[in-house]
C-alpha cells in the first residue's frame, strides 16, 4: 500500500460489496438517497406547478418524463416524490426500533409471567392487519404526515419486539449474563452492556428491513389518500393519480412505479447481502407486519 493507509471502509461494507447482489443493491440505494437529497436543487420545475397548456404531454426535451393530467412535470415530481415518505420512514423506524428492541430484550431477560403477558399482547396486536391498525388512528387523528410517524413507529415496533426477544433468548442463559447477574448488575445495565452488543447486528439488519417496509406502508397509505397529502409530491399519490389515465399517459404511471420498486428491490438486495455478511438469520416480511 506504499505507506498510504487505504480508505477506512468498515469491514461489513466491504463484505456487502464483495457480493454481486450486494453491490447492485448498495448502488441503487445510494443513487436514490443522493437523488432525494439533491432533488430540490436539481428538479427542473416546480413539482406543484400546473400548466393547462401542457396536459398529458408525452416525454420531450422540456418535460423528460412527460406531464400528468394537470400538466405537472413528471420528472420533477418523481425526483421529489420519495423525500417525504423516506423522512417519515426514517423517523418511524427509529421509534419502532427503540421501543421494540427495549421491550423485546427486557421481556427475554426477565422471562416468566411478565414475558408471557407481553408476548400475548404483542401477538394479539399483530393479528390486526397493520393497515387497519393505522386506519383506526388515521380515522381518529385525521391524515397527516406528522401523525403517521408515531402510529407507524408503534405498529411496526411489534415485530421488532418478537425479533429482539428471540435474538436475546440465545444469550440470556450464557455464562457472561449469569456472571453479570451474580455481580449484582441491574437489569437495565445487563441489557445495555451484555445483551445489546450481542444482538446489535440482528437489530441493525432488521432496522434496515423495517425502513423499507414502513416506506411501502407510507406509499400504500398515500395511494389510498391517507398518507402524504398534496401539494407535496409522493410516489404512491402519483400512482393513484395516474391510474385513470394509464392508457393516454402511461409515463405518468410508469416512472413513480419504477422509482418506488427500484428503491425497495435495491434495499432488499443490500439487506440480504448485509445479513449474509454478518451471519444474521434474516426473516423476510414477518407475517402480519
Amino acid at each position: 500500500m506504499r505507506g498510504v493507509r487505504p480508505l477506512a471502509v468498515p469491514q461489513v461494507l466491504r463484505d456487502v460489496l464483495a457480493q454481486r447482489s450486494g453491490r447492485i443493491g448498495f448502488v441503487i440505494v445510494c443513487l436514490h438517497l443522493a437523488a432525494a437529497v439533491a432533488a430540490p436543487m436539481i428538479a427542473p420545475q416546480d413539482p406543484a406547478h400546473q400548466d393547462a397548456a401542457a396536459m398529458l404531454q408525452s416525454p420531450s426535451l422540456a418535460h423528460w418524463f412527460g406531464t400528468d393530467r394537470l400538466g405537472r412535470d413528471v420528472f420533477s415530481r418523481t425526483l421529489l416524490g420519495g423525500r417525504e415518505a423516506m423522512l417519515i420512514a426514517t423517523l418511524a423506524t427509529i421509534i419502532a426500533m427503540a421501543w421494540g428492541s427495549a421491550l423485546g430484550i427486557l421481556a427475554a431477560l426477565i422471562g416468566g409471567r411478565a414475558d408471557a403477558i407481553v408476548m400475548r399482547f404483542v401477538d394479539a396486536m399483530m393479528s390486526i392487519p397493520w393497515i387497519l391498525m393505522v386506519m383506526l388512528f388515521v380515522a381518529a387523528l385525521g391524515s397527516s404526515s406528522v401523525a403517521l410517524v408515531p402510529v407507524l413507529g408503534f405498529s411496526y415496533g411489534l415485530s421488532v419486539v418478537y425479533l429482539a426477544r428471540a435474538a436475546t433468548l440465545d444469550f440470556v442463559t450464557r455464562d457472561f449474563v449469569v456472571a453479570a447477574q451474580i455481580r449484582g448488575h441491574s437489569r437495565w445495565s445487563i441489557a445495555a452492556t451484555e445483551l445489546l452488543p450481542n444482538v446489535r447486528d440482528s437489530l441493525a439488519v432488521q432496522g434496515a428491513m423495517q425502513w423499507s417496509w414502513i416506506l411501502l406502508a407510507v406509499s400504500s397509505l398515500s395511494f389510498l389518500g391517507m398518507g402524504v397529502a398534496p401539494p407535496t409530491p409522493d410516489w404512491g399519490q402519483m400512482i393513484a393519480d395516474a391510474r385513470g389515465i394509464m392508457q393516454r399517459a402511461p409515463w405518468a404511471l410508469i416512472w413513480p412505479m419504477l422509482a418506488l420498486s427500484s428503491l425497495v428491490i435495491g434495499m432488499n438486495l443490500a439487506v440480504d447481502a448485509w445479513a449474509r455478511a454478518t451471519g444474521v438469520a434474516r426473516n423476510r416480511r414477518v407475517p402480519g407486519a
Binding site: 400512482i239 394509464m246 402511461p250 412505479m257 420498486s261 425497495v264 428491490i265
Partner: peptide, 14 residues
C-alpha cells in the same frame, strides 16, 4: 414479495 400490492395490482390492470 418485494413490490407493494398497489403496484402489482396496477401492473395487472395495465
Amino acid at each position: 414479495m418485494t413490490v407493494p400490492e398497489f403496484i402489482s395490482g396496477t401492473l395487472m390492470i395495465l
